[in-house]
Each structure stands twice: as structure tokens, then as C-alpha cells.
């Protein structure tokens, strides 16, 4: 039993807390990115093998590919996380650019003031 999973889910919970309680738009965006970071940590942790080595064939393993395959950690989650990080950055960028305009229109970043749309 390791704490990796626990920490990952704590990050997700922290992000959720931030989303429901905080009022500042920037903080909400931070909360979102904390949630995705937690999920990334979980994803990376799944691929770990006890005593594993990075999935790179170094010179020591050039002639021992079976040994490499038996020791290296899972490469797929690492690739997935790479993709997912880019995606979360994109969402972040868009959110912040919208925040600029929200500030221009409403003069505040308090999401409780952003409620002109309701009927």
C-alpha cells in the first residue's frame, strides 16, 4: 500500500473543494488544473512496477531486451499524460483569456457577480 493513489485523490478532492467554495475566477481555474494534475499523478502511478526502470533502452540493456521488458515501467500512461497535459494547458489558456474579458465587462473576478444570465 502506497500513498501515491491517496495523494492523487486528495489533489482531486482539493480541486473540487476549490471549485465549489472559492469565489475568484482565477482560483477556480487553479482548482480545475489541480484536479487534472491529480488525475495525471494517478495515471502515472498506475504504470509503476516495483523497482522499475525508465522505459528507455540504455546501453546496459541493448543486448538484453527481455530483461528490459521485464523491468521497465509502463510507457503508455506516460504518453497519455503527455497528451493530457497539453490539453489541460489549452483549457487553462482559454479560461484565462476569458477571465480578462470578464474583468473588462464586470470589473471583478468574483464569480458570484457573474450572474446576468438567469431568465
Amino acid at each position: 500500500m502506497s500513498i501515491n493513489y491517496a495523494v492523487a485523490m486528495m489533489l482531486v478532492g482539493l480541486g473540487l473543494y476549490c471549485l465549489v467554495v472559492k469565489r475568484n475566477l482565477i482560483k477556480l481555474v487553479i482548482g480545475l488544473s489541480v484536479i487534472t494534475d491529480g488525475i495525471h499523478l494517478l495515471l502515472i502511478s498506475i504504470g509503476y512496477r516495483s523497482g522499475g526502470i525508465p522505459p528507455i533502452v540504455t546501453s546496459a540493456y541493448m543486448d538484453n531486451l527481455e530483461g528490459f521488458a521485464a523491468r521497465a515501467v509502463d510507457p503508455v500512461p506516460q504518453a497519455l499524460v503527455l497528451t493530457s497535459i497539453v490539453i489541460s494547458v489549452c483549457v487553462l489558456a482559454l479560461a484565462l483569456s476569458l477571465a480578462i474579458y470578464a474583468y473588462r465587462h464586470y470589473g471583478t473576478l468574483d464569480v458570484r457577480k457573474l450572474r446576468r444570465l438567469r431568465e
Partner: peptide, 14 residues
Amino acid sequence: KHTGELSLYVWWVL
């Protein structure tokens, strides 16, 4: 409950 408040939306999601 349809007050247009964002944190309420998120809370309902949860």
C-alpha cells in the same frame, strides 16, 4: 435554484 451562480452549478454537479 436557477440563480445563474457558477459555484452552485458545480455544487449540483457534485
